[in-house]
């Protein structure tokens, strides 16, 4: 790898902070996208498959929030 492929001013702190910020943004995107899908009638297995996670994981992470928000949920399985 040649030296000019890595910008000379790149501070590792910026790279690490970017990772933390991207994770936070991804969580926000996930909350919004899952809610939108469920409001439009997607099922848990469909959302799980689209996210590439198990339906148990997506249900555990989002069900309480969506129920509290009054979203009508399709059956889990």
């Amino acid at each position: 790898m040649s030296a000019d492929e890595i910008p000379a001013t790149r501070d590792p702190a910026d790279g690490l902070a970017a990772v933390a910020a991207l994770r936070r943004l991804a969580d926000q995107l996930e909350d919004a996208a899952v809610e939108q899908a469920m409001r439009e009638g997607w099922s848990w297995p469909q959302v799980a498959e689209a996210l590439g996670v198990t339906r148990q994981a997506v249900h555990k992470k989002h069900a309480k929030r969506l129920i509290a928000a009054g979203v009508t949920l399709r059956r889990r399985h």
Binding site: G15, L22, L25, L29, E35
Partner: peptide, 19 residues
Amino acid sequence: RSLNAAGVSLADFDLPRPS
């Protein structure tokens, strides 16, 4: 700024605010 460091601009996201 941290998102900018990864080339991501928050202004590009028009997110519906989740519950």
